[in-house]
């Protein structure tokens, strides 16, 4: 084991977290970017969570001989020993094609003895070592956005309980992203090949039971109109940014607002639904989504705010995702109908 050297072996972890990221042997920094260690598979999502314009790198690893079971709707059923990582870095200038990226944290979620655990590792300013940071930290950041405007963010490295707050399914810690519909996309692998992820995972022994990708559900890519209608893309955006809490098994189930793309009841996904316990977050607007009228709708109000008592999601966003806000606003504008009162 090389502890971040060239010949380490990925480790499944145990009951407690390693003190430093390199001990997991899942990812390393190579030429300023996160690279998977040997045997570790990178993956990407159709519509990811917005995190203050962070650049993200995701990996999955399982011990040999075990694999995840396919699931049509829920997160894949991962075996004990699975290690997922997600690294968050910030480009100095989002207009650059080869920006300088400062890596802030790498989160590790691993499954041991039937339960998931989570911790994050904070990269040092020298970008040499990432050290466990269970207490979390607010990191002031500044960068240039895609329009050339300077952005100041208060990026949150979450505490361990804050990890559990979002990764919460009926009080059980769970991954969020790796659902079939969000994984069902092509990925470019380190060897240069491009392949559908469900196919690749199956070929690599990471996944069993998956149908042909054409028969699997597929989430729209929020910012690619070729992948879905305005409604499909807006709802994909709301799912990935909101449904981890706004689901019947998430923290915000008390609100009755459920934002998964699988939710079919318009009232439940906000159409003409009065906010519950929103406090100042209601913005004086009568319903979560007023068809045709974004200015009467609570959801855009919460997406366009950076006030922590108002902004949604509650954790992980300190600047406005202007493109995401525009998408949701456009969708609400496109809706027809009226609300009773």
């Amino acid at each position: 084991m090389g502890c971040g050297g060239s010949n380490c072996t990925p480790d499944a972890g145990g009951a407690t977290a390693f003190a430093t990221l390199d001990q997991w042997c899942q990812v390393k920094l190579v030429n300023g970017d996160i690279a998977p260690e040997s045997g570790v598979t990178p993956y990407s999502l159709n519509t990811p969570l917005f995190s203050d314009y962070a650049i993200k790198r995701r990996t999955v690893w399982m011990p040999s001989g075990v694999s995840a079971a396919y699931d049509d709707t829920n997160v894949l059923s991962f075996p004990d020993g699975t290690v997922l990582t997600k690294s968050f870095g910030f480009a100095d200038d989002l207009r650059k094609t080869q920006p300088t990226i400062t890596w802030v944290e790498t989160r590790v979620i691993w499954k041991t003895a039937g339960a998931w655990q989570a911790i994050t590792y904070r990269w040092d300013s020298a970008q040499k070592t990432a050290t466990a940071n269970p207490g979390g930290e607010v990191v002031p950041l500044s960068f240039i956005d895609a329009n050339g405007n300077p952005v100041s963010a208060n990026y949150l490295v979450p505490s361990s309980p804050q990890c559990a707050q979002c990764h919460n399914s009926s009080e059980v810690l769970q991954p969020i992203g790796p659902k079939a519909r969000n994984l069902n996309r092509d990925n470019v692998y380190p060897d240069g090949n491009t392949q559908n992820q469900l196919t690749y995972w199956t070929a690599k022994g990471l996944l069993t039971g998956a149908p042909d990708p054409s028969a699997a559900p597929k989430l729209a890519v929020w910012n690619d109109p070729s992948t879905g209608t305005l409604e499909q893309r807006a709802r994909a955006y709301l799912e990935s940014n909101c449904a981890h809490c706004h689901s019947p098994t998430g923290e915000a189930y008390t609100t009755g607002l459920f934002l998964s793309t699988l939710e079919t009841d318009p009232f439940s996904y906000g159409i003409c639904k009065h906010p519950v316990a929103a406090g100042p977050g209601g913005g004086g607007r009568p319903v979560d989504i007023y068809p045709g009228n974004p200015t009467l709708s609570v959801i855009p109000f919460r997406l366009e705010s950076t006030e922590p008592s108002i902004a949604m999601p509650q954790i992980g966003r300190s600047v406005v995702d202007t493109a995401g806000l525009q998408l949701v606003t456009d969708w609400i504008s496109s809706l027809t109908g009226t609300c009773g009162s």
Partner: peptide, 20 residues
């Protein structure tokens, strides 16, 4: 490999990895 217990971890007692 050294592991750090999340349970009793505090910043003042943060154990560093053997290879740091």
């Amino acid at each position: 490999l050294r592991r750090v217990s999340v349970v009793l971890l505090s910043a003042g007692a943060l154990a560093l990895g053997a290879c740091s």
